[in-house]
Design a protein around this nucleic acid. Sequence first.
DNA 1: AGCGGTGTCTGAAGCGCTTCAGTTACCCTC
DNA 2: GAGGGTAACTGAAGCGCTTCAGACACCGCT
Lengths: 360, 360
Amino acid sequence: MSQDRARRPTLDTVAREVGVSRATVSNAYNRPDQLSPQLRERIIATARKLGYAGPDPVARSLATQRSGSVAFMLCEGLSSAFSDLALCIMLDALASTVDSGDRSLLLLPGIGDGGPRAESVIRAQTDVVVAYSLPDDAPALRAAQERKLPLVIVDQPVVPGSARVQVDDYGGALLAGRHLVELGHQRVAVLGLSLSANGQGGLATPARLREAHFRVTLDRYAGYLEGLAEGGIVAEQVPLWEAPGNTREFGREGTTWLLTQHPRPTAVLCMSDELALGALRAADELGLAVPGEVSIVGFDDTPAASWGTPSLTTVRQDLVEKGRQAGTLALRMLDGSRPGKPVTVGVELQVRASTGPAPR
Amino acid sequence: MSQDRARRPTLDTVAREVGVSRATVSNAYNRPDQLSPQLRERIIATARKLGYAGPDPVARSLATQRSGSVAFMLCEGLSSAFSDLALCIMLDALASTVDSGDRSLLLLPGIGDGGPRAESVIRAQTDVVVAYSLPDDAPALRAAQERKLPLVIVDQPVVPGSARVQVDDYGGALLAGRHLVELGHQRVAVLGLSLSANGQGGLATPARLREAHFRVTLDRYAGYLEGLAEGGIVAEQVPLWEAPGNTREFGREGTTWLLTQHPRPTAVLCMSDELALGALRAADELGLAVPGEVSIVGFDDTPAASWGTPSLTTVRQDLVEKGRQAGTLALRMLDGSRPGKPVTVGVELQVRASTGPAPR
DNA sequence: AGCGGTGTCTGAAGCGCTTCAGTTACCCTC
DNA sequence: GAGGGTAACTGAAGCGCTTCAGACACCGCT
């Protein structure tokens, strides 16, 4: 009989103790208007006495058919992801939006550079998935589709049937390119982010460019070229150095190479602020004045951008807005809404002290 | 009859289609050795055909009584948390450990500075909670205890019945203090982290110190004093400036104040690298040479510490180890292990270029 | 021939909760 | 005082899965 030993209390335990039905106890927690305040009071008190902390989340999820959490898949591991301040800011906005909708964030970090394992996604207790900047062929993406989970894509990649929020990468890059043209630059180099998820780096060949997977990189590159074209600069004259990761160190490495070419570029367009900060350092090490001898442009406008010396001219995207939109979209998908049009977050050029007129 | 319209397939659907029992289909996924390979093959194939992506995670959790995720509670929102590189590195190690144990990370960011809302914890689908540097009286903590969830505490606070991993804050600070003494410093100031979770800042009064909540801050302070005591410096001569948050800007602000006092300290012990980086900047702005006129010591040894000019002398803690330990502890708690002794992660002093002999 | 062992598969009892269609009891109204 | 409305509560049917104690057939052994 009494084998209900250290068993933790359930709805039933409480119901029995109070002498009401299970349904009533459930209502006490979920629909206070369905019972008299006194009874509710009594139920809650008894629950506390028995050490019952409220309906079990898992069981409740099963019954309601909603898990109450939003899964966030990202490309890399947490440490590289979180050193990406832009991602952090966005993620925070996402988390707040999602949390205020009474859901929590399930984090699915990537393994290597290819996103989370399919298995993690298969087993994830979630009812909507947000993917951030994943390679097109990420297994996690397929897994999510197999499970028919509503999908929200941020930036990358394009997946039919999913909601998406994206930054106007092309437009932002165009602004940056145009800015340099207006300053009279003629020899410009691009310091880019990864083209594909294999950690490769170095000067990007046309072949490499053709088989690229990351839309963000491609769009920004296209935008740069378009902006520069307004000054009569043609693509062939614009070297693209591919940084294997978004870190200062890679930025410095790439820039060191770019600035030791002949003829030396008078400006470097960097696809992130981190890269640009590394570029600044490289220029410094080479004894080149910024912006006197070389101009540097970033992308993202993270707080660090304004901290550097000189402060960084950069393309700002509204990261908070981006996260919020992604969250809203996710929440909306949960209500069964159709994906709808992609949401585009705007950009603007923040001109600061790292760019100036072309030398000579 | 046929109201099973757009209903998504379940174990049952597959079982019926194949003509076997539900148990067998379940085994096909969870215990391949329990059925013949051919049958398993057939089941998997049929499942795929029906668009069945495997056992529903929530239902499975209910049946197995384990949710498969580890909740991570932190004090602040994500954006401030993630600009804390030390946290990120640790979190990454934690995530990897946990993920390799086939579990995912449920993130419960804080609201304001007091940790997650109790409600978020109550509703979280998790079977173990890791708390990072929360105030002693965080509602989330109580909620976790109410649910009787196994608890792993990182750094802070001390909660009976929970596992914990902590850094030897005291020992690290002692090393830092002793280092300055050995360099001959006599007038030393401390730039500290928050004492309590209310965003207050400024010169810490004895009263403020007495009602402090954050162990980390207190331990480090005690360690500093102990180290300095070896040089005959007494506590009363060591001003403690409390930074309201762990940012460079606050570090700069505090240091500016400290370095404009008379007599001016010849060294500043900072409780984090971020603060120290701000301190560096403050010294620079005041036209004080580092380490010629003032020495700066950090804490944490984040990558940024070695990047700065001059590179930072700092106390290194093994963040990866810390995360890994926390993860291991969490996983172990799941198997019903008792908390056991606190795990302490070691520290060592990284002497770099920001400290030197006391001037004169 | 008889028997224990083994490899496969099944039935049914949960896991802890929500929810919906009732059922009472009570009050108001004409 | 019958009819209707409402507030308060209940019963039972799920939600989709796991698991454990069998059941059954077949094998090799003695």
